[in-house]
Design a protein around this nucleic acid. Structure first.
Length: 772
DNA sequence: AGCAAGATGCTTTTT
DNA sequence: GCATCTTGCT
């Protein structure tokens, strides 16, 4: 094999690879599945493989590499260039690939080349409009829920017609109608949503074999990363694009599939070998990232999942310290201790950028931020929205969008009175009604505002001025994008309005907008043929996550989802409690629990040297103090790789001051059977770190042992904290604790609208909701 | 037209 | 607890 490589760069392609890695890199033709365990050098394999193909004679332009994030795509591009591969390879995210293909072939599936990409907020607006048209009240159907269901339907490639046919009840029929209207509205505006970028392409490839064949002729090799996260549409695209040569290389790790809730189908990777019976499968099981203890903890945890492929991760890395599992009485204590630990580690010479804190839900970050700020620890939060989500930025972008696509009504409505130019609700309502009645586009009606009979003369004049502004801008925006943005700012009056806001002591939004100009200038510079259209597409498909700077000298805070693909020497995973991880919304479904377990697995496997996993026995959530119990996943970790430490609540003040005043800890209600809040399994090994002044009711040594009574005969024996139940009067609720007892089983149940109530189960009209 | 006080409703979010 | 949207008022 090596003899096939001629250049020095070629030789370096196979340097420092282990045997399975080498097999994956040098595999030539036919389907290949690389099952890459966490930290097993997957990125290295993919990039080397792409480079290897080129060095053995495959022209770069015949290779298509698909990733899920821009960051991954950029990284890959960078690495491949370092390996001396010429340009011409297609390296894109699925969505960018979709956009590129739709620009070229979209008209075959009712998408015209200048189409606009709607982000989630835009989508929601269109959807609300669609619901309005269908007289479906947002009171009864949450638009967000509808959006999710439409998205699901799309990704299954179901048309509104399919949905209507399949509809069995009123609800589903409403959905089909709204979906239809939504689709119609998008088409009228020549706009697509994120899903369309995938599903339209899938439909295109299915309906037009000649195009599929053409693309196959070009893409002789197709590489897909993070295959475990593909949804059905992406799966089809990958299949169609590789159907001729069958040189499909999928890499991924089923144990890291964490986007099932967004339609990703773990089955795609699990059943790859069924789809491609001749597939060569390479397993990368040597981990180069973590200590043996961390790895053992991760492996043991994930082995509880049924829906997976067996994998034996191992490492040659030197032994380190065991995983620390920390129990706190209260959430604030947890944050405080973590901040202290971070400060201490820093004191020992560990840079802040070596450390990261992960949590399941964003709500937990606030407490942490407070604690970090108090200690003066610099941190950075990786959040989704931010820059391009800002109002002023969206305003400017809306101008650009209208210039590119006058049919983009969402953008048009956004800017028509921004800055205020006296075209208010009334005028707008009249214009829209006129458009509807004459079945014209809103833009065309604006052009003929004089002819709208319901409009007052002053209003018509203002509209005319607005149209003139757009026309003028349109003539000016031919050149570089940065210039276009500048002209929009100057001529629209936005700049003046923002200046005034700043002068009058408001926020400096102008600075943000100027940042956009800078971004546009950067784009102009690095792009060969800068166009407004392309710039807007980039903005739509870019996300702030890409801007996370891992070397900024800060501690990084992020959700577990955001952590995927990253690694840190020191990792803290916080808030590991039933109801948070696994999240309460999924407790009823075993399959969903498995995804939560994978999420936990992803978190653990990010850690290189030390890992801290923490939970609290009570925590402020949505403004309420709620009792919590340790995540079941903590109990699934192996004993010989973990050390459990319990931090006692701060002692009660001798003067009798209430504990709330000190650290927010409230002794749990006496009624609570302690064993249900914190299961007893770990007690024997729990080490106390603080002297116990005041025995809390979950004391490890409490011998009263209510739960010691065998309860296996109780019909409620398998009711656990987190179990979902339905009460005749209060609706669906969740068990906080339960104590089975003959004829007298008590449970505390938390209901959505009614708070928490204690019941004697035998005397209460409450039933368990079935597990799927 | 614009603001301010109430009502609501809250996992995760590669694109 | 908070942010976001709606409603009602001026």
């Amino acid at each position: 094999m090596i003899s096939m490589l001629t250049s020095d760069a070629g030789a370096s392609i196979l340097a420092d690879l282990n045997e399975p890695q080498r097999r994956a890199v040098t595999h030539r033709d036919g389907p290949l599945l690389v099952l890459a365990g966490a930290g097993s050098g997957k990125t290295r394999v993919i990039t080397r493989r792409a480079a290897y193909l080129v060095h053995t004679g495959v022209p770069a332009r015949n290779i298509l590499a698909i990733t899920f994030t821009n960051k991954a795509a950029d990284e890959m591009r960078r690495r491949i260039e370092t390996l001396g591969v010429e340009r011409g390879m297609w390296i894109h995210t699925f969505h960018a690939l979709g956009a590129r293909l739709l620009r070229e072939f979209g008209s075959l599936v009712r998408v015209e080349p200048g189409f606009t990409i709607y982000d989630e907020a835009d989508q929601l607006r269109v959807l609300k409009e669609a619901m309005d048209l269908c007289s479906v009240s947002p009171q009864f159907h949450r638009p967000e829920a509808m959006q999710a269901r439409i998205s699901q339907a799309k990704n299954r490639l179901e048309s509104p017609g399919d949905c209507a046919e399949r509809a069995e009840n009123f609800e589903q029929r409403s959905l089909a109608r709204v979906y239809e209207a939504y689709k119609e509205l998008l088409e009228q505006r020549n706009a697509v949503d994120f899903d369309d970028l995938l599903t339209r392409v899938a439909v295109l490839l299915r309906q037009h074999p000649e195009i599929t064949e053409r693309l196959n002729a070009r893409f002789r090799y197709v590489l897909i990363d993070e295959y475990q996260d593909t949804n059905h549409a992406q799966y089809l695209i990958a299949r169609y694009l590789s159907q001729h040569h069958r040189n499909i290389c999928a890499t991924g790790d089923p144990d890291q599939s964490i986007y099932g809730w967004r339609g990703a189908d773990i089955g795609n990777i699990l059943e790859f070998e069924r789809d491609y019976p001749d597939a060569v499968v390479v397993r990368l099981e040597q981990n180069y990232r973590s200590t043996p203890d961390i790895l053992r903890a991760a492996s043991k945890l994930i082995s509880a999942n049924r829906r997976r492929k067996r994998k034996d991760l191992w490492t040659d890395n030197r032994p380190g310290v065991p995983v620390r599992v920390w129990s706190f009485a209260e959430g604030r204590q947890e944050s405080k201790r973590i901040a202290e630990t971070i400060a201490a580690l820093r004191g020992d010479g560990r840079p802040y950028s070596d450390m990261a804190v992960f949590y399941r839900i964003n709500a937990i970050s606030r407490e942490l931020e407070d604690a970090l700020r108090q200690r003066g620890i610099p941190y950075q939060i990786a959040r989704g929205v931010e820059f391009y989500g800002r109002k002023e930025i969206k305003d400017v972008l809306a101008y650009l969008r209208v210039l590119v696509n006058p049919r983009d009504e969402i953008a048009l409505l956004r800017i028509i009175n921004v800055p205020a130019r006296g075209i208010g609700k009334t005028t707008l309502g009249r214009l829209r009604r006129a458009a509807e009645q004459s079945e014209q586009r809103l833009m065309d009606v604006l052009r003929r505002a004089d002819e709208v009979p319901t409009l007052k003369v002053t209003a018509a004049v203002r509209v005319r001025k607005f149209v003139a502004l757009l026309d003028e801008l349109k003539n000016l925006v031919k050149g570089p994008v940065a210039d276009a943005v500048g002209k929009v700012l100057a001529l629209s009056g936005l700049e003046a309005a923002l200046k005034e806001e700043r002068e009058s002591g408001g926020e400096d939004r102008l600075a943000n907008v100027q940042e956009l100009v800078t971004a546009a200038a950067g784009y102009d510079e690095e792009t060969e043929e800068p166009t407004l259209l392309d710039f807007l597409q980039r903005v739509a498909l870019t996300n702030e996550q890409d801007a996370v700077d891992e070397s900024a000298g800060c501690v990084l805070l992020m959700t577990l989802h955001a952590a995927k693909g990253l690694e840190f020497p020191v990792v803290f995973m916080v808030g590991l409690e039933q109801g948070t991880l696994p999240h309460e919304r999924v407790l009823a479904d075993e399959r969903d629990i498995e995804e939560e377990r994978r999420l936990c697995f992803v978190g653990i496997t990010r850690a290189q040297e030390s890992l801290y996993m923490t939970h609290a026995q009570q925590r402020l959530l949505r403004g309420k103090r709620v009792p919590r119990c340790a995540s079941q996943f903590l109990h699934e970790l192996p004993d010989d790789a973990t050390v459990w430490e319990q931090f006692e609540p701060p002692a009660r003040d001798a003067a009798g001051e209430s504990p709330e005043a000190q650290d927010g800890f409230v002794p749990l209600d006496d009624q609570l059977p302690p064993e249900e809040i914190c299961p007893p399994s770990r007690r024997a090994r729990t080490r106390r770190l603080a002297p116990v002044e005041d025995e809390p009711c979950f004391s490890p040594d409490d011998p009263t042992g209510v739960a010691a009574t065998p309860v296996t005969h109780s019909p409620y024996a398998d009711w656990k904290p987190g179990t979902l139940v339905e009460h005749e009067q209060y609706g669906v609720g969740q068990i906080v604790w339960v104590r089975p007892s003959p004829g007298q089983s008590r449970a505390l149940i938390r209901f959505a609208g009614y708070g928490e109530k204690t019941f004697v189960l035998e005397k209460t009209p409450v039933r368990r909701l079935q597990r799927r």
